[in-house]
């Protein structure tokens, strides 16, 4: 449904995104995860035809976003981070206006507007001026606006930002229900949101994609094996080199906060191997004292932090 190839965009000398490549299948919900300023909004703006790319191509439903922009725009519902609302219009007349410029005609327009108001539960405010609505309602009108022409692709930029927990839950359920019929890309910097709503996550940092997988796989891939934390009494440098020598160990970091001559070491092991036995034996054979040995599961939060702080390690 969406094909993005080597997409880059510069703002002056700043590279907002660089060589971004990904695919989204029909009916999928994909989450864009990344810290603020990572390039999520830029990528979405290119897909919606709001700004052109500096290089690379992107196709939505087979149409090039640059060459056949109008065809693409017909098929996309887009909710920017700040919902684009006209405060001086009523909810209903606003939705009619949006439907009109999205190319929905006559009877169908009326039906779509009714349906979408039902869907996001804003029928009770249909005659109110948008300017007088609460933040939660405004957000929902913004969502309605993206849905009103029943687009194949939905692009939602931070759809739950600024909502209270109850509203967040409602919006997430709504988005989940949209999958299947619609292809959804949503961006967020909130981790639980991704694991709750998305089937696939694309993690983007400093304009580059650093990882792409299902939330479960991502957690598993990086950390599903273990991180092993050990507290060892012994010369730090030799402990590190000895542990590194154990087959299957990817990295060892030391934290000297252990007290006296003890240090805490964090050992990362490659996928699906339990190396506790080997690690323990190594330490004991060298004659050092082993005070603690335990495995740590990584949450998605850890994965995220890990990915965006240590990109280079993800490469392998």
């Amino acid at each position: 449904m969406i094909e993005v190839r080597h997409l880059s965009r510069n703002f002056g000398t700043v590279k907002a995104i660089e060589d971004v490549t990904f695919d989204v299948r029909k009916g999928e919900i994909v989450g864009f995860l990344g810290p603020n300023g990572a390039g999520k909004t830029t990528t979405m703006r290119i897909l919606t035809g709001y700004i052109p790319a500096t290089s690379g191509t992107a196709k939505v439903a087979g149409f090039d976003v640059q060459e056949q922009s109008l065809e693409v725009r017909k098929r996309i519902g887009y909710m920017p981070e700040n919902p684009p609302l006209y405060g001086d219009m009523t909810v209903e007349s606003y939705l009619h206006f949006v439907a009109k410029i999205k190319g929905v005609d006559g009877k169908l327009r009326k039906r779509n507007v009714e349906k979408v108001m039902e869907q996001v539960e804003i029928k009770d405010v249909r005659h109110r001026l948008i300017r007088t609505l609460s933040k939660g309602y405004k957000q929902r009108v913004g969502l309605a606006q993206a849905l009103v022409h029943d687009p194949e692709v939905l692009i939602l930029d931070e759809p739950t930002i600024g909502l209270d927990p109850k509203q967040i839950r409602e919006v997430r359920t709504l988005i989940k229900n949209l999958a299947g019929e619609h292809t959804v890309i949503l961006s967020t910097h909130i981790l639980p949101e991704v694991s709750m709503t998305c089937e696939r996550v694309i993690i983007i940092n400093k304009g580059r994609i650093v990882a792409e997988d299902t939330p479960d796989n991502l957690t598993a891939r990086l950390a599903g094996s273990q991180r092993v934390v050990m507290e060892v009494e012994g010369p730090v440098d030799s402990v590190i080199s000895a542990l590194r020598a154990v087959p299957g160990v990817m990295s060892v970091t030391a934290d000297r906060a252990g007290g006296d001559s003890r240090s805490v070491f964090t050992v990362e092991t490659s996928v699906g191997k339990d190396l506790r036995k080997e690690l323990a034996r190594t330490v004991v054979e060298k004659g050092w004292g082993l005070y603690e040995l335990r495995t740590v599961e990584m949450s998605l939060e850890d994965v995220f932090l890990h990915l965006v702080t240590q990109e280079e390690e993800v490469g392998n």
Partner: peptide, 12 residues
């Protein structure tokens, strides 16, 4: 207000 983004991403 940002509504320009709506117009510029609509098929007009």
């Amino acid at each position: 207000s940002g509504t320009i983004e709506l117009l510029m991403t609509s098929p007009v």
